[in-house]
Amino acid sequence: MDDQIKEAFLRSKSKDKQESYEAYLYILQVTEKQIDWAYEVWDDLLESLSDKDNHQRSRAAQYLANLAKSDPEKRMHADLPKLLEVTKDKQFVTARHSLQAIWKIGLADGVLKEKMMTYMADRFINGINEKNYTLIRFDIIQNMKHLYDQLGDEAIKQTAMELIDTVVDDKYKKKYKSVWR
């Protein structure tokens, strides 16, 4: 890991919101591609999933989702439950930002793709009593679309369409289908 990345991780925890935000954006950009230093930050990020600062929890989840493709030891297979817990954070904005990033885990390998699809489908179906469940459902359908766009797997699209067909409210059914146009 070069000094610029190390500095970005330090700055991402700054109390200066602008400095922290710029570092966050930089880290997300750098981790969009496969990197070779994931394990230098992995354990710290896992610990940050339970940080008292909701921004740090959200960012740690997003960083780990990005790093899943840079995980030759397949640590994500064991650590996934910790990350998914943040998608149900008590702070809705933290939960939502984490949820919106988890699709990237499915790019790492076929097993993780299946775990993500199972998790998202289950949450779509069984999360109806969650606060803001229509937004959560929208994010899940959007996640599936992102995965489909990256992988071209027709089974992903089929699953999304089957989930959308279970929606009773035409307003939301239409909204979810609009993601796939």
Rank of each mutant, 00 (worst) to 15 (best):
S58C: 09
L64A: 05
S48P: 04
S98N: 04
V93M: 11
W42R: 09
Y63K: 03
K69D: 01
V93P: 04
Y119H: 15
K69Q: 15
W103M: 06
I105T: 07
M117Q: 14
K74T: 02
E114F: 00
M120R: 10
L84R: 07
Y39V: 08
D89T: 11
T94P: 13
T87C: 11
T118L: 12
L99W: 00
L107Y: 09
L84P: 14
R75K: 14
A38F: 06
M76P: 04
L83T: 10
S98K: 02
A101C: 04
Q91H: 15
D44M: 12
D51K: 05
K74C: 04
L64E: 07
S98T: 01
R57W: 04
W103R: 06
Y63H: 09
L107M: 15
K82A: 11
I105R: 04
K88N: 07
A95E: 02
I102C: 08
T94H: 13
S58G: 13
T87M: 02
K115T: 11
L84F: 00
S98R: 04
G110C: 10
Q91R: 11
D51Q: 05
D53S: 14
E47P: 00
D53N: 15
L84K: 05
T118W: 08
H97L: 13
Y39L: 07
K104R: 15
E40C: 13
Y39F: 06
K90Y: 07
N66A: 03
L112G: 07
L112Y: 01
L45D: 08
E85T: 13
A95T: 05
Q100E: 14
A61C: 10
D109W: 02
S50T: 15
K52E: 12
E40R: 15
L46N: 13
L46F: 03
V93F: 06
G106V: 10
P81C: 01
L107D: 07
M116D: 07
E47D: 11
K104M: 08
